[in-house]
Design a protein around this nucleic acid. Sequence first.
DNA 1: GATCTCTCTGCAAACCTTTGCAGTGAAGTA
DNA 2: TACTTCACTGCAAAGGTTTGCAGAGAGATC
Lengths: 376, 376
Amino acid sequence: MPVTIRDVARASGVHISTVSRTFSAPHLVNPETRVRVLACAEDLGYRPNRAARALITGRTHNIGLIIADIANPFFPPLIKAAESQARHRDYHVFVADTNEDAAAEEELVHALAKQVDGVLLCSPRMSNSLIEQLSREVPLVVVNRQLAGLPCVLMDVGQGARSAIEHLAGLGHREIALLGGPRGSWTSRELRRAAGVAARAAGAELTVLGPNPPTETGGLAQAEQVRRAGVTAVLAYNDLMAIGLLEGLDALGVRVPQEVSVVGVDDISLSRLTRPKLTTVATPTAAAGRTAVDMLLQQDTDFPRTGRGGGAGAAVGVRRTTAQVMLQTELVIRDSTGPGPYAGPERPGATAAGPGPHRRADPGGPRVAAGDVVAS
Amino acid sequence: MPVTIRDVARASGVHISTVSRTFSAPHLVNPETRVRVLACAEDLGYRPNRAARALITGRTHNIGLIIADIANPFFPPLIKAAESQARHRDYHVFVADTNEDAAAEEELVHALAKQVDGVLLCSPRMSNSLIEQLSREVPLVVVNRQLAGLPCVLMDVGQGARSAIEHLAGLGHREIALLGGPRGSWTSRELRRAAGVAARAAGAELTVLGPNPPTETGGLAQAEQVRRAGVTAVLAYNDLMAIGLLEGLDALGVRVPQEVSVVGVDDISLSRLTRPKLTTVATPTAAAGRTAVDMLLQQDTDFPRTGRGGGAGAAVGVRRTTAQVMLQTELVIRDSTGPGPYAGPERPGATAAGPGPHRRADPGGPRVAAGDVVAS
DNA sequence: GATCTCTCTGCAAACCTTTGCAGTGAAGTA
DNA sequence: TACTTCACTGCAAAGGTTTGCAGAGAGATC
């Protein structure tokens, strides 16, 4: 039933190799023949079988996308952008969810290896050495993890943390807490390092709380600790935790931002919808997805795998690009940060922050909801 | 470089067909040989090439998942569940995003058809007849659309709408608005139909506003209309629109639920995080994903495609299961609904709703945030 | 001891496509 | 006219796997 190259060849009176060439090397076939073949193919609804093609060319025109948790709102924009970019380049995308499980990641890379031209590892939980090892099996691009010798797409959360701390210090906060992320997260380490430096420079003290699961629950569970720590501002590993913290503080009767200021990281769409709206370090997730796909595909055209042609040249040494891209982040100031105990005489909210990139969001809307200000 | 069945055969001193059988028909090979082959395979890190296998068996062990918009928070839980279920059954999942574009849907089905054993169409925007036609090319399961002769997974939004209207009427609302979804949405039509019937039965009047884009912006844009319509309660097509409406009403100084009650549909995770927390009709998205995958795979084992074996039996008539599954919805009462102008003497919030399934959410937490109640 | 049965294994074709090589005929050159 | 060049096309092998068929032994039955 499914129409093959043979059917097209029969219908247009040529050999199958001519049909093949019509699609994969059109300049080698007579224009007249070409239009005839194309017409027949169109008529019959022929589409080349990519699996059969992959068998001989060694390129599947598929890529794999391995995600720690699809339901985490950080990832969908990345997936969407990556898929879109891949499809523009005529690639299809396998998506797999690991449930934050390192073992599942490894198994998935193995399972997918033969079926794809490369794999995107997003916020992996595996060890560096394992990733290194897997990269010998299939081309890898890593998102949100720095790894010597491998192509990586990173977001400059260090700069983001600095902006956030400077923003808070500028508002008059001197006791700041950092809600750490999951153990083994590169982002969490980086955040902690940069925030530490920035706090010291601003004459503020940084208390680290964690590690924590990178979820709403993780943030909520730390509300009590935050209050007990006596800090007036908190930088959370991500928005989800920041939002959980918002909830937890609300339940404890701690007002945000009057008593405690909260800053998140990621700028997921949700963060515009909480009350108060969340001040956060925006990470360019969509750009990261696009960039990662580009790097993967570039690597693949530079150093093709298997296939009949590449056998001799590829040789033993596994060459590859190891470009590392660092994407800019940006502090988005909304309503969850306000003046602290050491605030100057400036109008609250208009306080200048440090020199980092930041912008005030949603200038048109109602900045501070009435309900938040007069709450019990 | 990549290890093939031939390498394993050589290493274990048997013919490739024996290796093949070791994996695909173990009972046909001598236990001793089997363990030897398996050991060699393990040693060499052999994994059968699924593309090559697909070429001859006609089954790819892949499925396609076509999604209107991955970034819409309704879908990720569905994707996650579907992917997980598929992988349990040893299937890999292509995910593709159509940007709500019908033409992209069609193109994707064609492009994927040869590479998958079936496709899940989630909230498709195509016409029924086109879907019908495409289903002759590749097995299809449709989610969120009822289509005679095709397997469908539906959520009982009709029941949900009824529960919501009865809940609102029970609270003393008589003037209710329905914020419609996008044109051509089965869910939207169903919602409207059921809400109309329920409103009539409850002696309430229903005003339909729309169609609207199924986004936060779509809801926000209708805030003015809602106020002008003079209704005291609104049922929105989905949570995203309800949340947008919440924002819009807040900007207009209309208090929720004191002046207007709002009910959403879907129970996306976001709806627990807004202020006030959203009352909503929970749809079982994860279950829908799992069920749809099961139906697709079931259909595929019942009526296999192509392949050497099935040629004679399959014949001309395209037989298939056409099971249609309707999943239950549930009204989740949170804080965005309150007593209306015709409320009885009951304690607000404890008002009994109609006989539909519903539950009061988050019994432990602070039910109504202080800030909401005393807001300006 | 001959025959049959049964279990296991090897052989080779098939799936659909790509691609190096060789062949064909026409046009161009001497 | 004879020869070369060139554009196009056909042939057949290859890629990794599955599977119907047949062959090889071993054990059982008479």
